[in-house]
Design a binder for these strands. Structure first.
Lengths: 209, 209
DNA sequence: CAGAGTGATGAGACCTTGTCCCATCACTCT
DNA sequence: AGAGTGATGGGACAAGGTCTCATCACTCTG
């Protein structure tokens, strides 16, 4: 299948550009229409004007088409923590990581989040992948913290708390009515969790659960 | 394929009993010999004297054969937290959950842990499943804590910290030379994490990472 | 003791995911 | 014009996983 040529600037594919983009959009549309399971890779490729072969050249996995940017996110987390000021505390390192990825949460990306979340919420296999993504981000943060000299246990704990803050901040940012920028929400979530972590450490506290 | 009859007491299979057990052992042996990827479900079933059909009747998934008891563990976590004394703090609820599952970590199960861990460590797909299992246990704990009235954020945080303590305690318990009972290790790990969580909450602390 | 019922298994067709190899095409460079 | 390059198409292929139906062992009932 050959599509009409489109002039495009930038280093894109040679035929019709944006093959990866087209596949992502086609997948999201079909998943929303018929559900994730009822949609085959061949159908996605077909709607994008491509074939199954090409799909798997762009995505290692059928699920991957919904979880594209996670590698970049993990890389940015790690980079921000590694390049934070030497005197920064662990909490400040985590906050720096959040600021580093704030660029990915621009208002124009905001519209794509709700349908994507809806598709994931409707399928347990995709929720699993979402959890996996979190674990991946968490271990990237923990590695970077260890690289700064933090001991293993503290690094893992801080990373878990950081990811918890990140994911709840993302959920709030992605809400349809939200206007606040991601950074503000993320910082608030992190501060909130820090306070609650302190409360956890006081078993004599009267706060029975 | 028909095997010689074996007298057996208890509600087992009608033909050769312990089909599920045999499949698990055959799988672990083959995975250790040839690796996870190079072992097909048909081979596992064949070594167990069964067929592919029967394998998928006992396990929803090829990976599932290595991750059997997680449902039970999650159930025990939840049950212990729901039935903890009304005045128990969150930390005490988590500790109660650990005690509830200690029965699963008896010395005779200790020997099966190292080969299983070795197989998982050699395959990323299985490590992913391990992470998924953790997330599953964590959400079971969080649900139970929410059921006691804890707010969402605190419940999730406590569950994450609890699972972190649990998995590091399990790793220590499963070490070949270990003699300590699981409960003692788990409580120590939880206490350790609580202290570090408190330190995280003090950003003015001089502990740069 | 005969026959119906039950539940686990065997057998095999079938679809989808994911891999692999090779031919083909568009575009670029010389 | 011709060679090179890189993305794509096409099809064969293995394995995972689902489904259906027949078969067998065992139990229960009359």
């Amino acid at each position: 299948m050959r599509l009409s040529p489109i002039t495009y600037d930038g280093a894109m594919g040679r035929w019709e550009p944006n093959a990866r983009d087209r596949l992502e959009r086609a997948a999201l549309a079909l998943f929303a229409e018929h559900g994730y399971d009822a949609t085959t890779v061949a159908e996605i490729a077909d709607r994008a004007g491509l074939t199954k072969s090409t799909f798997f050249r762009h995505f290692a996995d059928k699920r991957e088409v919904l979880f594209g940017g996670q590698d970049m996110l993990a890389e940015q987390f790690g980079q921000a923590i590694r390049t934070a000021p030497p005197a920064a505390t662990i909490a400040e390192c985590v906050a720096a990581a959040f600021e580093a990825v704030a660029g990915a949460f621009t208002p124009d990306r905001h519209d794509l989040a709700p349908p994507r979340r809806a598709v994931i919420a409707a399928n347990s296999e995709l929720q699993e992948r979402e959890l996996l993504k979190r674990a991946y981000l968490s271990s990237a943060m923990a590695d970077a913290l260890r690289g700064r000299g933090a001991d293993d246990t503290t690094a893992r704990l801080a990373a878990e708390v950081g990811i918890l803050a990140f994911s709840s901040a993302y959920a709030r940012w992605a809400e349809p009515g939200n206007q606040q920028p991601f950074t503000a929400i993320a910082h608030a979530a992190l501060g909130d969790l820090q306070a609650r972590a302190a409360a956890l450490a006081v078993p004599a506290d009267a706060a029975a659960c």
